[in-house]
């Protein structure tokens, strides 16, 4: 036990130290990484933009065609962009849930709004579970000592060798077995259980990857930050929550994108567990494209474009989080 005076002085010393570190991490405003200009920024920007633009040209073209097709009367692929008729008909049909026309322009209708809500619930649910679980575990593996640490990491990445599609046989068996305990009469509980199981099962697939990713980000945080807080008498959990988390925002943003996309685009799990009561955009699009022999593709193009919008929005949001971590620095 130290006497209170020297302890207080250590404390104040460390506080000053943290202040310094925070100061370093908090530049006046974020303007790219080049605080000291030694080369022609414009030239570098131009060069990189040109190279990336050229390499991405085919992709860019494909998506222009996709968006144009969503307004056209045929799925565009080339010269037909000049001969096609354009209208917002496809979008109207999509929101009315009318898809592939058959003889006499008939449609099976679908509740597209409900489908979007389902997709959001699954995607955000997966994101939430993945974020909480892997940020905790990544911290433990990066910052704490315990036996089998290296082994655990190895095991975790190797788990990825087991493809979801193979794993699903057994995950499905467990699902069927546990579903037996839920009373079928209570449809709401039944459906909720289906949803929750799907979210957790899907999130679990992302966990090993996320932990690996987070560990890398935690590794970069200077130890001084944590020590000083611990010396302050904060608990390990409190330090994790209040000091460390804000420092790994870039990692969290990357993680959030992957987790969100995983939930948003999942086909196999959603299909196996939720069909036919609950449908998401991805399974819905898959179903429509699945009958490519007769399907009316421009509506699929519209559905595909619609599908992209929330993901882009989510991406931009997480990117702001990332930049904020860089320019805003750490808040106490």
């Amino acid at each position: 036990m130290q006497d209170s005076r020297s302890r207080a002085s250590v404390k104040s010393l460390l506080k000053r130290e943290i202040g310094k570190i925070r100061g370093r991490l908090k530049p006046p405003a974020y303007r790219g990484v080049w605080d000291v200009e030694t080369i022609d920024r414009r030239r570098l920007n131009l060069l990189l933009a040109l190279v990336l633009g050229l390499a991405g040209l085919p992709v860019f073209m494909l998506y222009v065609l996709l968006v144009m097709s969503s307004f056209a009367n045929t799925m565009l692929s080339g010269p037909d962009i000049f001969s096609a008729r354009y209208s917002i008909e496809n979008w109207r049909m999509l929101f009315e849930g009318r898809l592939s026309p058959a003889a006499g322009q008939q449609y099976t209708t679908r509740d597209i709004i409900m489908i979007i809500v389902n997709t959001l619930v699954v995607a955000l649910g997966v994101t939430a579970v993945v974020l909480v679980v892997s940020v905790m575990a990544g911290y433990a593996i990066s910052r704490m000592r315990f036996r089998g640490r290296t082994r655990l990491m190895e095991l975790m990445i190797l788990l990825h060798a087991f493809p979801g599609v193979a794993l699903i046989i057994a995950v499905y068996a467990i699902y069927v077995w546990t579903l037996g305990f839920i009373p079928t009469e209570n449809t709401f509980a039944y459906k909720s259980y289906m949803m929750v199981y799907t979210v957790f099962a899907r999130a679990a697939l992302e966990i090993p990857m996320s932990i690996w990713l987070m560990k890398g980000f935690f590794d970069k945080i200077p130890w001084e930050v944590e020590w000083s807080a611990l010396v302050d008498g904060a608990s390990r959990f409190k330090v994790w929550r209040e000091i460390i988390i804000p420092l790994v925002k870039p990692g969290i943003s990357a993680l959030a994108i992957f987790a969100f996309l995983a939930g948003w685009e999942d086909l196999i799990y959603v299909h196996v567990f939720l069909y036919p009561e609950i449908k998401t955009l991805a399974t819905f699009i898959e179903e429509v494209v699945g009958s490519i022999e007769t399907t009316y593709l421009p509506v699929v193009a519209a559905a595909g474009t619609l599908y992209l919008l929330p993901t882009i929005l989510f991406f931009v949001l997480t990117q702001q989080l990332l930049l904020q971590a860089l320019s805003g620095g750490v808040k106490a």
Binding site: V129, V132, V133, S134, M136, A137, Y139, A140, I141, M144, M156, L159, F162, L167, I169, A170, V171, A173, I174, F200, A201, A203, A204, L205, I207, P208, I211, W240
Partner: peptide, 16 residues
Amino acid sequence: FLIPALTLILVFYVVP
């Protein structure tokens, strides 16, 4: 810190 992760991995990876 590891409990949630280990639980999920156990239920959805190891057992399956």
